[in-house]
Design a protein around this nucleic acid. Sequence first.
DNA 1: CCGAAGCTGACATCCCGCTGACAGCCCTCG
DNA 2: CGAGGGCTGTCAGCGGGATGTCAGCTTCGG
Lengths: 218, 218
Amino acid sequence: MRLLLVEDDEAIANGVRDALRRAGFAVDHARDGEAAWVMGGDEEYDVVVLDLGLPRLDGMTVLRRWRAEGRVFPIIILSARGAWLDKVEGIEAGADDYLAKPFEPAELVARVRALVRRKAGHAEALLTFGPLLLDTRRMKALVHGSEVNLSPLEYRLLHALAHSGGRPLSAGELSEMLHGVDAAEANAIEALVARLRRKIGAEVIETRRGFGYCLMDG
Amino acid sequence: MRLLLVEDDEAIANGVRDALRRAGFAVDHARDGEAAWVMGGDEEYDVVVLDLGLPRLDGMTVLRRWRAEGRVFPIIILSARGAWLDKVEGIEAGADDYLAKPFEPAELVARVRALVRRKAGHAEALLTFGPLLLDTRRMKALVHGSEVNLSPLEYRLLHALAHSGGRPLSAGELSEMLHGVDAAEANAIEALVARLRRKIGAEVIETRRGFGYCLMDG
DNA sequence: CCGAAGCTGACATCCCGCTGACAGCCCTCG
DNA sequence: CGAGGGCTGTCAGCGGGATGTCAGCTTCGG
């Protein structure tokens, strides 16, 4: 799950980044508005956390430009200005949420998770696919009610499939999501899927030959 | 746009309801938890605004029950309790947003709008042609409601025909679309169509002798 | 009734995806 | 610092589904 954090205050940025990383997000960090603008134009992030008071290019401007360009990723505004008028303005400009400083990192994490849930079209932090239950808050998986020990990559693979909304994800796409930008990692994904199937049961991960992988219904 | 407001305090309810109606929502009003529970079970609301301190059935309980039942409408919590821990708890329980009292109705309206926007991004991509239903997100086809397993080429062929706007596509065109630039693959397309017809029913793909193929109306 | 376009079943091939084994890497622990 | 173990990428081989090809048949239009 890729997330862009736009924040110039290093102290706040470090705290937030750590909290988000612990929550399982791959966090990119932009320190000014122009960097944010470029990064948001290149990558397709799952969520953007956007400070308003930025050097070089104001946060609201970045927000409006993104929306004018048709970028649809969820955006949470962080701001020192907590008056209701500021909040209304931010949200009407296209933000999905508005959090006034100072705030507790845990609340930000909760709100980010709510947006990810909503973006994927479901409402709960617990997702079930047949015998598999994915607890996205604790980052754990249960099969038939008993906990399964997953490696980081295995968990992220399940997480990616669980949030794809039923769309099959190809090995290439998955490789790109789990590793860096460029894929091309031999058959690493197939091997990963095989190991995962041994742990959680073969039928949970469906192979759609020629399309990719997806999780079983239920 | 239908909205359910759950709030027992008449003064707050009136203010909020007026603001939401002015914003164009059709507002239903529940004054206690049990009424809310019933109404949310019957109707499919676009957004629910849920107070936590309710007579007869606690707001958090209603929220959890809805989510346990699989109701996915966006929920905004209203609460007098504004501590970050309360907010985290509410959101993790399945709410999409949390607004502490006192609040400005305009802010609530803005947040409701943000949720509606986000929900609107989930337009379903379903195309129907007679008994055939093409689910472009899952890349699956249903015939008379039962799932059909399509090979990649078969799916792409249907997809191409579905997007041709009723214009028949010749074997040559189809071959060019499915394979590379130059077509000329013997009668591969005819064979493909034959296999496809066996799976989804012959009448779905019409042959327009001399012109090509197209999907039946529907 | 004829010819061409299209259909179909059989078959061969090819490539995708599965698997088990192995190796390098990193972290932990003695 | 070295040993051990878990995690993950790589390789080679295999099985089977996907798809092109062909030959013969059917259908349509004139």
